[in-house]
Design a protein around this nucleic acid. Structure first.
Ligand SMILES: [Mn+2]
Ligand SMILES: [Mn+2]
Ligand SMILES: [Mn+2]
Ligand SMILES: [Mn+2]
Lengths: 227, 227
DNA sequence: AATTAATTTTAGACAAAACTAAAAAATTGT
DNA sequence: ACAATTTTTTAGTTTTGTCTAAAATTAATT
């Protein structure tokens, strides 16, 4: 399918994406003010744009009732999200950007219009399933495996996942992780939880290590639901 | 230097690039009509835009006198051309696009604003000197080695260069090249020219071959002037 | 030199995407 | 229930980049 045949502007695309994200998997209708805040614009501008998107039947909109993406709009949103996340993988895996530097650039790259480009990029990256932040990458048809991102401290013994983020991004904590050879992208499995102090034993590439409760509450693990 | 701090729009950037290309290395002033034709827009629109670019002192403009890039404008043009050509190399070398498919996509990618991105892309590609069409890639400061693109038939014995294009792009000719293992990107050296029929002996990776005058008039060689 | 032709600029209009200020509707608190 | 507050929409501007039609300037021909 070729969504950009709709001739969408960059601004329209960003609105569609924002509405998708605010709708919680397109389940609840989104308020004008929420969109305005997210897009750093004014509610009146949002109303104007929402009317236009409604004209193009990308959203369902009734005055004062909030807005929800149509099926067409949902697919457009997912195709932009797909591009955004594939570019983020490219920036980290191929150009050696840090995982926290890529968002701004991907925000631009996601608007490049070329099906061939994104297909070939996908192949070049080895068809990744998640982006550097652990968020799932939809396929061409907008299908993706929902993923759960949780703090290690919230998981039971036996859980397994990829380390995709930190809660505490202080230099001290990041230095600590480095020292203990814990890096974004590593796969962890929870082996044991000590009731006494909440510390945990987890297995990593380089063997099993013990982490304090404080560390466990500051590391996010990405559990991909295989289905 | 950080040219996008000028906050240039996509449209302004395309105008600057077009003016540079039409000015023949910024040596002669460019006519309004020429810009309009190239940009597929109307002369009146060009006049409007040229006034704005003049306000930003990117071009030197006097009514009815045509337009020329200022030094600032020339550097902006070269930074866009640098990005365009680096992306073209990426598309061909890394994503396996054909050399004649990349221009349209690069026309979009050249407007992505991020110094870090283009630096890292440059490194990832191994600091290429020319793009897939044999055109030179300016460095960060807008410096590039001028290159000459000539038909093989116009060159003397001893000339050496990289095959960067075809004059005749018919399927028949391209198939012929394939059969004789002549590909874009190959380095050729002219060993001998037969006065009788104008045929030539050239050395390639896979030994030396003989090509007819007709072939020699349909293949472009890129001779980079090392300086 | 004068007329004709081509090029370039001006004037006025329009669509996209933003804004401010004010009106209208929905929500909340008493 | 109704006044106060919040949310949303409308009305009227602005900027950017385009357009058409008409006027001004320059170039080309006789
Ligand atoms: Mn964006
Ligand atoms: Mn991401
Ligand atoms: Mn362009
Ligand atoms: Mn090129």
């Amino acid at each position: 399918m070729c969504y950009y045949c709709l001739e969408m502007t960059l601004s329209e695309e960003d609105y569609i994406k924002t509405i998708y994200h605010l709708s919680d998997f397109n389940s609840k209708s989104v308020a004008t003010n929420a969109i305005a805040e997210q897009m750093k614009t004014k509610p009146s501008s949002v109303t104007d744009m929402v009317k236009k998107l409604s004209e193009k039947s990308l959203v369902n909109y009734k005055k004062y009732q909030g807005v929800l993406l149509s099926e067409k709009g949902r697919l457009v949103a997912l195709s932009i999200i797909r591009k955004h996340r594939l570019w983020e993988v490219f920036l980290v895996d191929k150009l050696n950007f840090a995982w926290d530097e890529v968002h701004v650039v991907a925000e631009q790259l996601e608007h490049i219009k070329s099906d061939a480009l994104i297909d070939k990029l996908d192949a070049h990256l080895g068809y990744p399933k998640v982006d550097p932040h652990g968020d799932p990458i939809p396929n061409k048809d907008g299908v993706f495996t929902k993923s759960v991102k949780k703090l290690i401290s919230e998981l039971p013994v036996g859980s397994q996942g990829v380390c995709v983020g930190v809660n505490d991004s202080s230099a001290a904590f990041l230095k600590f992780l480095d020292k203990n050879k814990i890096a974004l992208g590593d796969t962890f499995k929870i082996l044991e939880i000590e009731e006494f102090d909440g510390s945990m034993t987890i297995s990593t590439r380089s063997g099993s290590i013990r982490i304090s409760k404080q560390i466990a509450t500051n590391l996010f693990l990405e559990i991909v639901d295989e289905e």
